[in-house]
Computed example of a mutant assay.
Amino acid sequence: MKINQLFPVIVPEFSYEGDLQEIKDALRSEKREQFNFPEGVETTCGNLHKNERFRPLVDWFKECLEEYRLANALQCERLDISLMWGNIAPAESGVGHPRHRHNMSLVSAVFYLTKGVATVFHDPVYPRVMDCMEVISDNLKVRGGPIEKISADAGKLILFPSWLVHESDRHFFDYDRMTISFNAFPAGKINPGPFDYPMANIKIL
């Protein structure tokens, strides 16, 4: 049997060369609560992109988003961050992010401030192919179909389509796992047509 694997999902990586300690200190100073019950990952408010302490990082995120926009020939003037938040999985806590996706967005991201457990991505085609033949198992490798993992390396940023279902493994290491995530949305003139008249003109607040 010949297998034709069609339409792979592109998840680019970028590497940050700035000072991570300053960002980690800034993240630890932010108020955090547990929102993804029953898990215990601590999450900040989603306004970090407006916080001056994160400005150098946000500027770099914007550069990465522009590179992504150009590489994918997206028909918008730019990609603006609409929500940005920090996450801490405490040391030896065994907590992780449950399976989810980021609705009503276009591009999502995970920026790793520390090493730690991987981000797990689920094959988006498998559930549709299997239809009602749902696979239920405690084994992560078969539960819900094929998966791919991207390792958590300090300073790594990954961008992915917001509809892509993902989670994180459970964190049992003896240090805090720290990440910053954001969603980005098309901004400015969207899908300009004849006479440069756009389908929409969007401003992200």
Rank of each mutant, 00 (worst) to 15 (best):
Q5G: 10
N87Y: 13
K156N: 14
A187T: 00
I136K: 15
W60D: 00
L6E: 03
Q34R: 11
R143I: 15
E134F: 15
H100T: 08
I180G: 11
V165K: 10
M199W: 09
S108W: 12
K189Y: 01
F182R: 02
N47A: 12
T119E: 01
I190V: 07
R53K: 14
I88P: 09
H102T: 06
G188A: 01
V110C: 09
L113H: 14
P12M: 04
D153L: 13
G188C: 03
D169P: 12
P38T: 01
L48R: 07
D196A: 00
F37V: 11
V107A: 01
W60A: 04
R143G: 12
A118S: 14
A154K: 12
D25K: 11
P38V: 03
D138L: 10
S181L: 04
P124Y: 10
F54M: 04
V120P: 10
F37L: 14
R32A: 08
Y112A: 05
K50Y: 10
K115F: 11
V9E: 07
V9H: 06
S29R: 15
R99F: 13
P192N: 00
A200G: 04
L106N: 01
I180T: 04
I202C: 02
I88R: 09
V95A: 04
L48H: 11
R177V: 10
K62P: 05
G40A: 05
R69P: 03
P8E: 01
P38M: 02
P192R: 00
R99Q: 12
K50I: 12
A89Q: 08
T44R: 10
P161K: 03
P8L: 02
H100I: 06
V120R: 08
L79G: 00
D19F: 14
P146L: 07
D80V: 08
E13L: 15
D25E: 14
A91T: 05
V117Q: 10
R78D: 01
K62G: 10
V58C: 09
A200C: 04
K50E: 09
Q34E: 15
K141A: 12
S29V: 08
R170F: 08
D169W: 15
Y68C: 01
S93A: 12
D25L: 12
C132W: 15
K115Q: 08
L157S: 07
E66S: 00
A89Y: 15
M199R: 11
V117T: 07
Y126C: 06
W85K: 05
L65T: 02
E67K: 11
N47T: 09
P198W: 03
M84P: 08
I23W: 09
P90I: 02
V125R: 12
Q21S: 13
V9K: 02
F14S: 03
F111T: 03
E22P: 13
P198D: 00
T44F: 10
V142P: 07
L140Y: 14
E13A: 15
S162F: 15
L70Q: 07
L20S: 06
P56N: 01
D196H: 03
F173D: 06
F185P: 00
